[in-house]
Design a protein around this nucleic acid. Structure first.
Lengths: 229, 229
DNA sequence: GGGATACTATGACAAATGTCAGGTTTTGGA
DNA sequence: TCCAAAACCTGACATTTGTCATAGTATCCC
């Protein structure tokens, strides 16, 4: 079960690929592999993180609690993503909670290994920087989407996002199954509104459902809806 | 008028302070000082940037056009901030427009100087990384605010933000004067709604106005409103 | 100074969205 | 297997917000 980072394929998807052999060895020696059950937190808003989490399997939601008691899901992270980087880099407590949406397998990497490499290996630092630049761009897009699109448009967009990023199962349902509440927290709306729009989309033949599973039926119309037609 | 980066105080506020003397010298030799008039763009969404802009004076709005034809202002950048970093780092065209809200004085620094230093000076890279980590955190906060707060709450927050970040003039008005439209684009609402809420706040004695200038009268109540009381 | 243009303001209305209240169904654990 | 809890769903209603229309006001440029 336990394995060496040097041989880990996951690494190819994130900034760790810019580490040297020796650095990876150090990471591998200090890392701790953990399993996290669905619904359990990797960390919570306000925690001081002593390291980062590299996702090997499963999906985590990154969310932030707002004053009115609702969570806003800012990002869904899956295989290959590294969580907690920002907190470790800026040496602040984290502003997001990370909760498992699936059963997960993650590697915890102590911050010393990361900070060490950040100071010595410019390639690694630059690689992390590039990733963060990308995340920031995505965040800007989310801001514009949320503020300028209707709930319906954002719902349509969310389904397409789930399809593109997590794919479909053999029966044509979205591979990542979220609760209605989670969906509403991604979109930034009330759970009832999310449910209502799901019903509406179903009636219009845009999606089909089975229990909490949702499948996309008419991708094109969903896309048009996102664009505002 | 023209001056050397080595002697520039502005630099202390941004990542350029992590540059070595030689690196700064190179930057200084290659930089171009520009003045940008109110309303003119530094760059526009989709442009490929050949460098970054270091703000010496004035304020710039960073905005993104949405499908429905409205701009969303994502950030207001003033003295000391470096614009266009993300685009240069990720080597993509920029996803935001930067337009002067004031008359501005900026230094354009060609990307070669930046990229060069990024690859050679881990301290500089790390410093840029820290800044970006901070920006990303702020962006997450904006996402949560926009999606979970009412327009009224966001308006109140915007005024407090302007007060905290740009201060007040001698008569107690916010030092940065934005048009009603710009305010609505910061908050993410219709201009009419913004105007209506300004009227309402005025009636309730939370703010006072004179022309387009706005002053905060009851900071405490505004704060309570943001928190949801 | 005067006219065009942009900005500010307000009312009336429609549409979108949230809230509350009440059901039904599904799920997970004893 | 069965029960309780959680999740899902729907209706009714209030509130928020956007849109359209229209008018006043400031500003800029010739």
């Amino acid at each position: 079960m336990e394995s060496r980072c040097e041989n880990c394929i996951i690494r190819q998807f994130n900034s760790l690929r810019a580490m040297s052999k020796e650095e990876l060895k150090q990471v591998s020696d200090s890392k701790i592999t953990k399993t996290v059950k669905k619904g359990e937190p990797l960390f919570e808003e306000g925690d001081k993180l002593n390291g980062v989490y590299c996702v090997r399997n499963g999906v985590s939601k990154l969310s932030k609690l707002s004053a009115n008691g609702k969570d806003q899901i800012v990002k869904l992270a899956s295989k290959g993503e590294v969580l907690g980087q920002r907190s470790v880099i800026s040496q602040e407590s984290t502003n997001l909670s990370a909760i498992a949406v699936d059963d997960m397998e993650v590697c915890f990497i102590p911050k010393e290994s990361i900070n060490n490499t950040l100071q010595k290996n410019p390639n690694f630092t630059l690689e992390v920087l590039r990733h963060m630049a990308h995340d920031l761009k995505e965040a800007d897009d989310v801001i514009v989407n949320i503020s300028q699109k209707t709930v319906k448009q954002r719902m349509a967009e969310a389904f397409l996002y789930l399809q593109n990023n997590f794919g479909e199962d053999s029966e044509g349902f979205l591979a990542l199954t979220l609760s209605r509440e989670d969906i509403s927290n991604v979109v930034g709306t009330a759970t009832e509104s999310a449910i209502r729009i799901i019903s509406e989309f179903k009636k219009k033949g845009l999606i089909h459902t089975s229990g909490k599973k949702i499948g996309i039926k008419d991708e094109r119309k969903l896309l048009e809806m996102v664009e505002g037609f």
